[in-house]
Design a protein around this nucleic acid. Structure first.
Lengths: 215, 215
DNA sequence: TAGATTGTTAATCGATTAACAATC
DNA sequence: TAGATTGTTAATCGATTAACAATC
């Protein structure tokens, strides 16, 4: 792999999307693809795609394009998709359920191996083969099972407390689904998957469109 | 409201986040807040916050800061949070369930008023008071109930078909949860809430961190 | 008045796009 | 060879940050 310049987050976030499209192409047994074609499928500038990939190495062939399967393999390597990361999920509500089932889809890469909830009525129940554990079992589970990712699916009011617990347990990264801004130390990576933000901004643009049409 | 220059998407996406923090402050009965304080809470540059807000008007007072409740009201106006948008949800799996329940949280703003699924075993069941309808009821429901937003929570393989149906029914916007790139006409707004992307990029950074530590 | 903080212009930074030599 | 397409440098565009006059 090429000497890592500084790779922007925007680039890293596009890689999984490239992979999505490439996987589809692979299934359809397409051999090669050009940045032009990828750009069309993804609504991205071909130059950007070439530049993104070039951060990590020379994966294409001039005059030909990219070998689909080779590029898949390379992106999988970059994203470390062959290393399994164990994750704990906190909050066994509907969203938690949904993510546990998604688990099957994610397969080996990120694997939820422990589920926690504060509610006595949930503790002891099973979700996709995992028994819901009480919150005070969190720390030892994280340490014993080498869990590195915490997935927060509790209500917003509880999210910071849960984040604190995760940090104290030595977690490396958090994926937060609660609509709340969480404070964590600098060395803990936190990503937000807040769809209310998406929904509200979507509504904004729809309404704006409508108002402009009606003018 | 100020003459709308061109407001970037980044700005619009930050507004709901500002609102989140402001709501918390309002609950704690904080009267005023400075861009400095907001910046600290949100890990954003205060100048950026001032600039974002200034796109829409002059909401603050020099030397004082922003009145929390007034700013909340203004942002709610900008985002049209007092207009209700009706939404249809397609895909009554766990994720669909989770979103329907979230519905209560979103309250008046975006309201899911119809749920659809292709699977005969799901049709007729109730989710949060709504009866799951077959796919061929989609078009008339959208048109009759003035539904403007479609929320896609079906598997990736079905997502494009559902999107096509929604577009044909005259939808204005789509929030897509399926891990797939969807093609829609230019006048239909599409937002993606793809948490696998978040999860994979999170795993990338965690692994990178670890590798750098171990060097 | 002195201190604080906005709104806004100018400076900086970074990301996207265009252009093109290299080469399959 | 001619056509296509990469990898990369240079140009452009846009977003973030700094700085500061205005003013509460």
């Amino acid at each position: 792999m090429k000497q890592q310049l500084k790779i922007s987050e925007a680039v890293v976030r596009r890689l999984p999307i490239y992979l999505q499209v490439l996987n589809e192409l692979s299934i359809r047994e397409v051999q090669t693809v050009s940045s032009q074609e990828l750009g069309q499928k993804l609504d991205l500038n071909p130059a950007q795609i070439r530049k993104d990939l070039a951060y990590f190495g020379e994966f294409g062939r001039k005059g030909i394009g990219y070998d689909v399967n080779y590029l898949i393999e390379k992106i999988r390597q970059i994203l470390n998709l062959d290393t399994t990361h164990y994750a704990a999920l906190i909050g066994a509500g509907n969203l938690g359920h949904a993510l546990c089932n998604y688990n099957t889809y994610l397969k080996d890469n990120v694997q939820i191996t422990a589920v926690f909830d504060a509610s006595p009525s949930k503790i002891g129940t099973k979700i996709n083969g995992l028994t819901v554990q009480p919150m005070d079992a969190l720390r030892s589970a994280i340490q014993d099972q080498h869990i590195r990712i915490g997935i927060i699916t509790v209500p917003a009011s509880e999210a910071q407390n849960v984040a604190n617990e995760l940090v104290a347990s030595g977690i490396d990264g958090i994926l937060n689904f609660a609509p709340a801004i969480l404070k964590v130390p600098e060395d803990v990576r936190i990503h937000h998957a807040n769809f209310t933000t998406e929904l509200l901004s979507l509504a904004y643009y729809i309404e704006k469109e409508r108002l402009e049409r009606d003018e």
